[in-house]
Amino acid sequence: MDVLVWLATHFIGIFQKGATVFSGLVIGIVPLLIVLMTAVYALTRLIGPERIDRVVQVAARPGLQYYPLRYLVAPVLSVFFLTNPMAYTQGRWFPEKYKPAFYDSAVSYVHPPLGLFPHINPGEIFVWAGIAAGITKLGLSLPELAVRYALVGLVVIFIRGIVTERITAFLMARARRSQGLEAEAEATASSQAGTPELETQPSRG
C-alpha cells in the first residue's frame, strides 16, 4: 500500500512540476509574443513585402562591394519581415550560384535575434528561451545576452555566406569539369566501339 502511495505521489509529482513550468512559460512568453507578432505582422502588411524585394534585388548583383548587402542586409531583412520559412523565397532574386549561400546565411539568422524579435521564429523559440531560462533563474540581465547573440549571429551569417558561396563555386566548377569529362569519355567510348573490329582483324589473320 505504501509503495502504491509512494508511486502515486511521485508519478503525479513529475507532472505537477511540469505544469508549474508550463504555466510559467505561458504567462511569461505567450502574451509578449502575441502582442509583438501582431505589431510586426501589421507593419509588414502596411510596408508591403514588395519593397523588401527591391532591396534584395540590389543585393543579388555581382561584385565584391555587394557582399555585405548579399549576406547581411538581404538575409536580415528577409528574416525580419517574412520570417521562417517564407524568408527563403527571397532567394529567387539571386543568380543560381549565390542561392545556396543566401539560403545558408538566411537560415542561420532565424535564431540569433529571437531574444529581441521572437516573431521571426516563434515555433523554435526554445533555441533561445531554453538557455535564456537559466540566465533568468540566476537573476542576470537577458538583454545583454540577446544583443550579443544577435550581433555574433551577424558575423556568423556573413562568414557562412562567403564560405558557402566559395564552396558552391568550387562544386559547380567541378560538376562542369566532370560533365566535360563524361562527354569526352562518351566520345572515346564510341570511338573505341569502332576499334574492336580493327583490332580483331590481325588476330583473324
Binding site: 520559412p85 517564407m86 527563403y88 523565397t89 527571397q90 532567394g91 529567387r92 539571386f94 543560381e96 550560384k97 542561392k99 545556396p100 549561400a101 543566401f102 539560403y103 538566411a106 537560415v107 558557402t164 564552396i167 558552391t168 562544386l171 559547380m172 560538376a175
Partner: peptide, 18 residues
Amino acid sequence: GLALGEAEQETVEIGVPA
C-alpha cells in the same frame, strides 16, 4: 529552402553538399 528560392534542380544538387 532552395526550392522556395526557385532554384534549379542542378543548383539543389550542388547546394545541398555545399
